[in-house]
Design a protein around this nucleic acid. Structure first.
Lengths: 205, 205
DNA sequence: TGTACATCAGTGAACGCGCGTTCACTGATGTAC
DNA sequence: TGTACATCAGTGAACGCGCGTTCACTGATGTAC
């Protein structure tokens, strides 16, 4: 195994270890020393592969985004192409929303790390990460295009963002216990109900 | 000035100092030593008045909840009583939503502390705090009652929670820069648009 | 193939920093007589 | 009113802990001849 291969396999091991810790104890439970022990290397070795822990967390979050995309793609595959029929486009939005909920519910801590992680002031998110985020919005924009084909692209992008934000709010506060616990089944009903209501209220004139 | 009066005025001074720091540098910027310096006492004195810093933060957040209630009450006062007419009830929900946005936008860090603060595992939120939260939902439930008078109270409570969560999502992600910046005017439009759509989609058959 | 050397991943003790909370002590306020 | 004592807010140095990152050093791997 040459240098670059070793380096890559260490990188893999570190990402996998960080992912395990985040999934089981949350982003705030991540510690450099423990991470090194889990990945089978010394603390210092982390910094040969990543600039700092933020870098590593971004790598983990990148994977989470990819997994989320898989989940959304799976949900989209179950519906026929919504290109033409309005009711199918509505179904598609509802399916995406509940798929988002189910993804978050199944792996809450990993999902929450996407939103809890903050870079130190001054450091910006890398381009590849932003691109990964943008890809996800396609799953909302596509049905929106079917519902209102003549809407300007920027307006559609804004609306997609708003729909996502609303659903994210439902999921995020729903999975926290702060406002009282809601069983997942009830929550799924609410997500479906509200998503459909939003879409109908916006387009179904 | 007797003991209890002194104690109260120190409590006031500490809450006020903590509020200033949270408003200007955020919850994460709160430090015991600095707080004591700002309030004009020694670090140790904090612990004569509050059990720990979490206790103090809860006191600050309680005030923020009260301020938020004032803002919502102000918005509600501008609309006629929505008890009977559907369109007025819709307007009332939209006004509450935009009032929430404006409150959050005007004092983002103080508002964000409401959601960023987490008690250590095992410690529960005090009853008075939970009661303050519940009071705010009345501003959503009242118009919902006008829109669908025969809905069961628990269902109405759940729906109020969902509407709040959706709006909160819009406001929360909208005021962050993570998904790209949106000017406040645009954001207000989106909040109004989506709130009205949700309410219409849910009730306006 | 063998040897000398260069490169660089890997090591982990140590650095540097920050922070919430405690506690032995001080001194101002209130009380009893 | 005056004095002795008790109470308790207030003090701040010190405790205890945790953590990300560095850096002088080691040793395995690759290269040149």
């Amino acid at each position: 195994m040459d240098f670059t291969a070793r380096r890559l396999s260490l990188k893999e091991a570190l990402i996998a270890a960080a992912e395990r810790t985040i999934a089981s104890r949350g982003l705030a439970g991540l510690r450099a020393r423990e991470l090194a022990a889990d990945a089978g290397c010394a603390v210092g070795a982390i910094y040969n592969v990543f600039a700092d822990l933020d870098d590593l967390v971004l790598a983990v979050n990148g994977r989470t985004l990819a997994a989320l995309e898989q989940a959304l793609a799976g949900a989209a595959a179950k519906t026929p192409d919504p290109q033409e029929r309005t009711d199918l486009a509505l179904d598609s939005l509802v399916r995406s929303a509940t798929a988002y909920l189910d993804f978050a519910a199944a792996d809450t801590l990993r999902w929450r790390a996407l939103f809890d992680h903050r870079l130190p002031a001054g450091k910006a998110l890398p381009d590849w990460y932003l691109a990964d985020q943008v890809k996800l919005f396609a799953y909302i924009e596509q049905p929106l295009r079917a519902l209102q084909p003549d809407l300007a692209p920027e307006e559609r992008a804004l609306l997609a963002r708003s729909l996502f934000s609303a659903v994210h709010g439902l999921v995020s506060l729903g999975l926290e216990e702060k406002l009282g616990a809601v069983p997942l089944g009830k929550l799924r009903e609410q997500v479906a109900l509200v998503t459909r209501a939003m879409a109908r209220g916006l387009f179904d004139r």
